[in-house]
């Protein structure tokens, strides 16, 4: 519900008249809610900035948060939500930072012995502040989602290192659940590593993968086939007994793809293929 032009004018006037008192009591109330987890200076700066942005928006005739003249105000609110989200405050604590202005307003009006008109104004002002609060809430949620997406991406990066085991042999030790998105990243990483290192052999070790279902197996198979198309051989290692049972039970066909129980077995297999002597007492003289 948008504020009328008169109400906007009165609101702006009221804010100007009581600026010092309002900012102080607003900051005070917010500080109570945040229980000292933000420095007083930082908080004062935020509140002053917010207050100034609100005043300017009202001066510009903005009666709702969506008004084009409230762009600056929206930016300040988003920034506030974003920083709160990143600092680990809850959504309630963040929204309360805005809603506290209502209490501050009420306190300032009480002091003037409110009449019916003032109360009507208060309700109208409150409606605008509610809008601001909801906007903060939405920005907070968006900021959190961004944060989660960023972290998920970082996790993908972290969780899939491709290591060089030997001249011409790279390996990916997979740890954790392999969903479609991760499988795709692993696949691309591994294939890129084959090209950049010129390694004709790759080992995918699934010791750290808790379960293999048809979809995971499908991704592994696709990776192996893609590597083959590029001219590299892929071996799957680290198949635990339970996983071997699931694979057979699900009827997953690994075809002629080499599978080994451990990474060590896989490496030995690969080295034998590439002609390196892997016997313990391998005679290298002669």
């Amino acid at each position: 519900m948008a504020l009328g032009t008169d109400e906007i004018g009165r609101f702006a006037g009221f804010l100007k008249e009581h600026e010092a008192a309002l900012v102080e009591s607003w900051s005070h109330r917010v500080a109570d809610g945040l229980r000292g987890r933000l420095s007083q200076t930082e908080l004062n700066r935020q509140i002053e900035e917010l207050f100034r942005a609100l005043s300017e928006a009202l001066d510009g005739g903005a009666g709702t948060v969506e008004d084009p003249n409230a762009a600056e105000l929206r930016a300040v609110l988003s920034e506030l939500s974003r920083s709160r989200a990143r600092q680990g405050f809850t959504s309630t604590e963040t929204a309360v930072s805005v809603f506290a202005l209502k209490d501050a307003l009420l306190a300032a009006m009480d002091a003037r012995q409110a009449d019916a008109g003032t109360l009507r104004d208060f309700i109208a002002f409150s409606a605008l502040i509610d809008e601001l609060g909801l906007f903060t809430f939405a920005s907070y949620a968006a900021a959190r989602e961004e944060l989660i997406a960023d972290q998920a991406e970082e996790l993908l990066e972290l969780a899939t290192p491709v290591v060089k085991l030997w001249e011409g042999v790279v390996a990916v030790p997979l740890v954790g659940t392999l969903d479609s998105a991760r499988a795709q990243v692993v696949m691309e990483r591994l294939l890129d590593a084959l090209v950049t290192t010129g390694s004709p052999y790759a080992i995918i070790d699934i010791t750290g993968v808790p379960a293999v279902d048809t979809q995971v197996a499908q991704h592994l198979l696709k990776t192996v086939v893609a590597a083959r198309l590029m001219g590299a051989d892929c071996i799957i290692s680290g198949i635990r007994p339970q996983i071997a049972q699931t694979i057979v039970a699900l009827g997953i066909e690994f075809g002629d793809i080499a599978t080994k129980a451990s990474l060590a077995d896989a490496l030995r297999h690969v080295l034998r293929l590439s002609g390196v002597d892997t016997r313990r007492n391998g005679r290298k003289d002669g």
């Binding site: 696949m187 691309e188 294939l191 890129d192 084959l194 090209v195 696709k222 086939v225 893609a226 590597a227 198309l229 590029m230 001219g231």
Partner: peptide
Amino acid sequence: VGMRPAVAITLV
């Protein structure tokens, strides 16, 4: 020789 990874994935 030299098939790119993205090409191999697409072919599969």
